[in-house]
Design a protein around this nucleic acid. Sequence first.
DNA 1: GACAAAAGTTAGACATGGCTAACTTATCTA
DNA 2: TAGATAAGTTAGCCATGTCTAACTTTTGTC
Lengths: 156, 156
Amino acid sequence: MTKLQSHGREPFETVDRAPEAQAEGFATVRQAHESEMAEDYVELIAELIETRGEARPVEIAERLGVKPPTVTKNISRLKAAGLVRREPYRAIFLTDAGRELAEACRRRHRIVVEFLLSLGIDEETAERDAEGIEHHVSTTTLEAFEQALKQFRNHE
Amino acid sequence: MTKLQSHGREPFETVDRAPEAQAEGFATVRQAHESEMAEDYVELIAELIETRGEARPVEIAERLGVKPPTVTKNISRLKAAGLVRREPYRAIFLTDAGRELAEACRRRHRIVVEFLLSLGIDEETAERDAEGIEHHVSTTTLEAFEQALKQFRNHE
DNA sequence: GACAAAAGTTAGACATGGCTAACTTATCTA
DNA sequence: TAGATAAGTTAGCCATGTCTAACTTTTGTC
């Protein structure tokens, strides 16, 4: 399980990556930021539909900690992106695409949270950090988290 | 090492957090986004000064994958924030505050990368994901990562 | 059913962090 | 040292995501 020393370099040594690789990394982060809003919203909408029966702007605003006009604007962006269905003044529904995205996000979110918990981190912190981390976890890393979780479960 | 079952709930169960707690979490993420630019820049500037002797906008632009005018604009923001010293058309220097921030960021970055590597993730992915993850890792989580790293090192 | 309260929208502002085009300054080299 | 090239800046544009103030629609209650 520990590849640490097998990379042929000391831990904590600064890696000198090719500038293009580094640039690509930052580009990836910027792209992630662009999809964060959509991901947070559909994830929350799915959660609200499940637990509350419907997703209402006022509730979304409260949960996200933003004001209602922000939600209105962002929901219409999601509508334009084909992720939600919606009539003015009515509740918000997910399209198939929205539901798929929501499912993927919720799965990823759960894995990140569980992984952090398995490190002994408290729930509040795990949830809070996961909110930020989840958008930057590649498939590779997510699989590694799942793998590590399995290990933890076996060894307890 | 595994607190997983001791939290008194099933793994992969959706947590129903208080709306305010959830909102606070999203607020934390938004705040992190605001400091990301500064952190990425000072981190990179420190790296360039160390490896290249000086930090030049053209190099920063190349490494971050942005255009030179973007760098100019952001550097003046950093200057306004007291993180860098700088004369027009000259190289960029860190202030004491900038150096401190850079050090903290680089340390955090290294820990995140090492931690991901210790999970068996390849270097390219580890670096790339760390770039995004590092800004959302609380002190608590960072400590947990360090702790886990120590464990891995002992057990290999 | 009318009216008050709650929910939602619209309009317009602002900061952030990208960009291109055009200009200025610095550096290199013949 | 002059001229070309590279580096850096300025101006002005755009999208994102937030806000407040004011308005409209819906809901709930008497």
